[in-house]
Simulated scan of single mutants.
Amino acid sequence: MVQHAPPAAGPFSNGAPGLDEKLAEAADQWLRRLAGERRVSPLTIDAYRRDLRQFLHFLRERRGASPDLAVLAELKPADLRAFMARRREDGVASRSLLRQLAALRSFARHLGREGLATVGVFDKVRSPKVARTLPKALVAARAREITAGETDMDEGRAPWIAARDAAVLSLLYGAGLRISEALSIRRGDAPVGRTDSLTIVGKGGKTRAVPAIAPVRAAVAAYLDICPHSLPKDGPLFVGARGGPLSPRIIQLTVERLRGALGLPDSATPHALRHSFATHLLSRGGDLRSIQELLGHASLSTTQIYTSIDKARLFEAYRAAHPRAE
């Protein structure tokens, strides 16, 4: 089974020296609960930790002293609006600010549940509106080009690294995985030989089974055949140049270089391959419920956005081909 690594350890106060001891202890308890009971992903835990530290740092500057539980209980809407304005000045987009407010609300609920403080300010301030944009899917031919691993950009790169990147990208498009999910696969779970499926633990600890189609298995096998590093069964399937765990940033940079080599738009990202997986399944008659399960979406409404993409592609084809479309 593919599982996420445990969240980064270390006291909350490590990144916020001088923080009130009771507040720091409450923050540590909150993060442990999210990771344990709620099974929130390590990446989200790290983001929430940063979000709370940034807010407390802002309060320290605004109040001239390190905040404590009593300060949080006395917060006014003006304090929160000032924080949101500061984040806007720092160039933070609405979607990131919305996530930060979600983290702060979660912490406030934790304080109330534990009887430590009642922080009601979040019920009095509206969250920023985020425009719902359709994911950018690639046409099938372009998606295949990205996952093929056969471009001029491979010159100067070790063949095994090119094969590794092609295998990772094949999992994103061929199985609809997120980068974090592909990189969390263990060597012992590699989809090769008779292993034609993967068990993935995605967001919120939700487990799902995804098929590993023949091109995906072939790409992974090609990588394993020439990988120079010893890969223990309980270790990561995909490793970096020195044999350590592969960073998601390496895959992102690979796709950036591929965009240049293939003349693709900026919207061609690793996550766009996952969007393409869903869009292409739907356009070929895939059932929305089945696609929801393959993607690991908790709600069908999240998956339904792909029906809008399919309609948009249909209208684009109509406008391009029909003699009376103009």
Rank of each mutant, 00 (worst) to 15 (best):
1 M>W: 07
5 A>N: 06
7 P>G: 05
7 P>S: 13
7 P>W: 15
9 A>W: 09
11 P>W: 13
12 F>K: 02
13 S>K: 10
13 S>L: 08
18 G>A: 10
20 D>W: 14
20 D>L: 05
20 D>E: 08
21 E>M: 11
25 E>M: 05
25 E>N: 07
26 A>I: 01
29 Q>N: 07
30 W>N: 02
35 A>F: 14
35 A>H: 12
36 G>H: 06
38 R>C: 11
38 R>N: 10
38 R>F: 08
42 P>C: 13
43 L>S: 06
44 T>Y: 04
48 Y>Q: 01
54 Q>E: 09
59 L>V: 08
59 L>M: 07
65 A>D: 14
68 D>H: 00
71 V>G: 01
76 K>I: 05
80 L>H: 11
80 L>C: 03
84 M>Q: 13
84 M>D: 04
85 A>K: 14
85 A>L: 14
86 R>M: 15
89 E>D: 14
97 L>E: 11
98 L>G: 08
101 L>Q: 02
105 R>W: 11
107 F>V: 10
107 F>L: 13
112 G>H: 15
112 G>W: 14
116 L>H: 04
118 T>L: 14
119 V>K: 01
125 V>M: 06
127 S>K: 09
127 S>G: 08
128 P>D: 08
131 A>P: 14
136 K>D: 10
138 L>C: 15
138 L>Y: 09
145 E>W: 14
147 T>D: 06
148 A>C: 06
148 A>K: 05
151 T>P: 06
152 D>I: 13
153 M>N: 09
154 D>Y: 12
156 G>Y: 15
163 A>S: 12
166 A>L: 01
169 L>C: 09
173 Y>V: 09
176 G>L: 04
180 S>D: 03
181 E>K: 12
185 I>D: 15
187 R>S: 12
188 G>V: 03
189 D>V: 00
191 P>L: 04
194 R>Y: 04
196 D>W: 15
197 S>Q: 08
200 I>T: 07
208 R>I: 03
210 V>N: 02
213 I>S: 05
219 A>D: 04
220 V>K: 03
221 A>Q: 07
225 D>F: 07
228 P>R: 03
228 P>K: 02
229 H>D: 12
229 H>M: 05
248 P>E: 08
248 P>Q: 10
248 P>W: 07
252 Q>T: 10
252 Q>M: 07
254 T>Y: 09
254 T>Q: 07
256 E>Q: 13
258 L>R: 13
260 G>C: 06
262 L>R: 03
263 G>W: 09
263 G>A: 06
266 D>T: 08
271 H>S: 09
272 A>K: 01
273 L>A: 14
273 L>Q: 04
274 R>N: 12
276 S>P: 06
277 F>H: 12
278 A>L: 04
280 H>K: 13
284 R>T: 05
290 S>M: 11
290 S>K: 03
291 I>Q: 01
293 E>R: 00
297 H>M: 00
302 T>S: 00
303 T>E: 00
308 S>D: 08
309 I>F: 04
312 A>G: 14
313 R>A: 15
323 P>A: 15
324 R>Y: 03
325 A>T: 12
